[in-house]
């Protein structure tokens, strides 16, 4: 009977833990939307801040929205251009060299685990070295570095699931290796690859620590790569601590926008991965 009581006791704790985790998520989304939604208005998302982002009571967060979009779209594209070939290379040409492949995966996992602030500091070192100022370009370079491992590793996870028999059977038909990698892999893996891109985009748009040193912050919308740019995470970070209520409203509005974007990405990725699982050839 003591046995039974112990099991029941722990089962209750288990359920409590699990429910608490789900509750934490709801609590976070709720508190962000509760404070952010009232602050959202057309003016908020269509204007740049007036009179300085830290004290000016007028204006909105358009600078941060545009800045974040520039930054994350560009760095996701760069990461995709570098990451996709690498992931392909790993799964087409390196597949025979198990040990090397595993070491590469190991290094990528380690890179994934390095915190973004370290990438930020490194980006800063590069910036100084090349004599760059805080700018959109420096931010894009840093964020690209930071999301490439994420991009490669999540694509790799998708490509890995393509059965090697598929590759061999196409090889025997005589097509060249490059052709195979593009035709077969892509057709089978596009939903999974898009999911990886979305995941990386989510990281890029949400990260604050890596852009802190490199992208700077400004009230205006960047017009060239060498201009500094505002980003949503930093808009939240800087403006939340302002003594001015209107400025804090801008932080809450930015938080709501960012949360929306992240939720949208999550939902899209979920739908895609459901489709991806269905389309996979079963052996």
């Amino acid at each position: 009977m003591i046995k039974k009581a112990e099991e029941i006791f722990f089962r209750i704790l288990m359920i409590i833990s699990t429910v608490a985790i789900a509750a934490a998520l709801l609590l976070i989304i709720f508190s962000i939307l509760y404070n952010g939604l009232p602050a959202l208005s057309w003016e908020m998302i269509s204007q740049i801040p007036k009179g300085g982002f830290y004290f000016g009571k007028e204006g909105g967060i358009l600078n941060a929205i545009i800045g974040s979009l520039y930054l994350s779209v560009c760095s996701t594209l760069i990461a995709l251009l570098i990451g996709l070939p690498v992931a392909m290379y790993m799964n087409v040409f390196m597949i025979k060299h198990r040990n090397t492949l595993n070491s590469v995966r190991f290094i990528l996992d380690i890179l994934w685990g390095i915190p973004s602030i370290v990438y930020g500091a490194f980006g800063f070192v590069i910036m100084i070295y090349f004599g760059l100022k805080t700018s959109l370009l420096a931010g894009i370079i840093t964020v690209s570095l930071f999301i490439i491992p994420i991009m490669v590793r999540s694509m790799d996870e998708v490509l890995k699931t393509v059965p090697s028999g598929l590759l061999e059977s196409s090889l025997s038909l005589g097509s060249t290796k490059t052709e195979i990698s593009f035709k077969i892999f892509l057709r089978q893996c596009i939903p999974g690859i898009v999911t990886a891109v979305l995941l990386s985009f989510g990281r890029a748009i949400g990260d604050a620590a890596s852009v802190l040193f490199t992208t700077g912050y400004t009230d205006s919308i960047p017009e060239s790569l060498s201009d500094p740019a505002a980003t949503l995470p930093l808009a939240i970070f800087f403006q939340l601590s302002s003594p001015v209520e209107e400025v804090r409203q801008r932080a809450f509005a930015s938080a709501a926008v960012l949360t929306f974007v992240i939720l949208l990405i999550s939902i899209a990725a979920r739908i895609l991965s459901a489709r991806y699982n269905r389309n996979k050839i079963k052996f």
Partner: peptide, 28 residues
């Protein structure tokens, strides 16, 4: 079915940016 329910919860929680956690921390 619990895993089916919890998997999205875990994934979304993992995807929320650091700064949002910060705002939540300040608020609650």
């Amino acid at each position: 079915s619990v895993l089916k329910l919890m998997q999205p919860v875990i994934d979304i929680l993992a995807g929320i940016p650091s700064v949002i956690f910060g705002v939540w921390g300040v608020l609650m």
